[in-house]
Design a protein around this nucleic acid. Structure first.
Lengths: 258, 258
DNA sequence: CGGTACATTGAAGGGGCTCAATCCACGTGG
DNA sequence: CCACGTGGATTGAGCCCCTTCAATGTACCG
């Protein structure tokens, strides 16, 4: 089942990791069982609670089963940079998983559910399930690509371009997991979070959103984003619509294992 | 042999991947042989030549054997964002290696030498050498962490803080490969490259460097960076000196394989 | 009903940009 | 040996995007 085929009837339904990795490879029954096991015991997380705290040791990754969260760092004087928005089905813990203590904090933006995956467990998978290891590696690679795009955003784009790019990237990512339709999605982010993600102040995020609306490109109402002019917005943002989907699936992952 | 122990007599000597991964794990003889093979046929690259071109298909990673290079993207109107500085011993190709075409360009800043590693080869390693796969995974994880730090830099720090952080991070990275002494190193970057890395204009990079010098924190002369006040500079940059070294080595990698 | 969280709008200031000139080191050809 | 061109560093003037500070609006909730 690909993303496009997955039913979107209940847009808030959990999106298990199994489905995400199934986009990257063909799973054997055994592999699928293993992945299901990993998510056997999800634990609820309340809105605004931290899942991982910067500087604290930790021994588990997490699969975000349901809900939105953010990865961020706060500087000594209180400035905060949001590194990325974590969507349902994303694996939390990269790139920090090889470090003694967490490099960044993760907090739930909404009521959420996470399934812990002990670090040891991940290493075990690397040892015994090389195909899964490769797929997980691939998915982290994709995450790093998003960091890079984000860096380009903040380093070299104007506020207008940044916000446009940000909204388009979320559209693409949410569509891939069935949480967005053709041109709209629910976005439970405050303008403060957007500002901290994009390196902008709250008032300026507000003004920028207003301008996008005045220009007829995007409408945001009641936490619902509606892309009114995909063409125009993409041109403005210099958005490479397909980069997140333009991946290569090695032969080895494309066929079920012997 | 750890980084600290490696002789620094010839600061321009190549730093093979073997040594880099040896910092992350204990290599078996067989693993070491495999890694040496990967670098058997390095190829020279002239200054300012591209090693990878954005948008073009490619089927190899590269190990940067010698020289400095940059990973970057140029936007349609000519603005450029440098994503990271690639140092000798770094593996080039992440995060693009799973994509059909290169997401970013890589260009040599100095005369350089690279050893191609066919993508297929990497997958083979994942299949047959899980310990190496884990170590490579770790090293990419570290690279992603640098992207994240870079993002914080550009998103939430002032020009002065950015430049300070940038110079400190290079100090740390170059020390780890024996290309920097206690508080100085050679840095073959133009101010334009620094500006494109930090999201600043050339004149402003210049003014910022001057201020750092006037404040007695850093001296740059003739492509040589001298950190005059490590304490002060670190405080200014909010620099977590140790983050790049604060990693966890799993039992599995710490002991030689059976 | 008061309190909290968030969106919105305005005014004023500043950090960093653009544009442009100058300087300097170096290599190259006459 | 010198004139010239080139790549890069440096410095200045003016301006604009975005920030800061502050006030107001508004929905929701105990």
């Amino acid at each position: 089942m690909t993303a496009a085929e997955r039913p979107t009837a209940n847009p808030e339904a959990p999106v298990p990791l199994t489905h995400r990795l199934a986009q990257l490879m063909v799973l054997s029954a055994k592999e699928e069982r293993l992945l299901d096991e990993l998510q056997a015991a999800p634990r609820p997380v309340r809105r605004n609670r931290e899942i991982v705290s910067e500087g604290r040791p930790y021994d588990s990754l997490f699969i975000l089963d349901e809900g939105f969260s953010i990865r961020y760092r706060v500087l000594h004087d209180g400035r905060r940079q949001v590194l990325n928005i974590v969507l349902p089905g994303d694996l939390i813990g990269f790139p920090g998983c090889f470090f003694e203590t967490a490099l960044y904090s993760i907090a739930a933006l909404t009521e959420a559910r996470v399934a812990p995956v002990p670090f040891q467990r991940l290493l075990g998978i690397f040892e015994t399930h090389p195909r899964l290891a490769t797929a997980i590696f691939w998915s982290f690679s994709r995450e790093a690509a998003m960091y890079a795009e984000h860096l380009i955003d903040v380093g070299r784009r104007s506020a207008l371009e940044r916000v446009a790019h940000f909204l388009l990237e979320l559209l693409t990512r949410l569509q891939a997991i069935g949480l967005a339709d053709e041109n709209s999605y629910r976005l439970p982010l405050t303008q403060e979070v957007m500002g901290d993600a994009l390196g902008l102040s709250v008032p300026h995020v507000n003004r920028t959103l207003r301008q996008l609306r005045d220009d007829g490109l995007v409408g945001i109402e009641d936490q619902r984003v509606v892309i009114r002019d995909l063409e125009g917005l993409s041109a403005l943002a210099d958005f490479e619509r397909s980069y997140l989907g333009r991946f290569r699936m090695p032969e080895w992952l494309a066929k079920p294992p012997p």
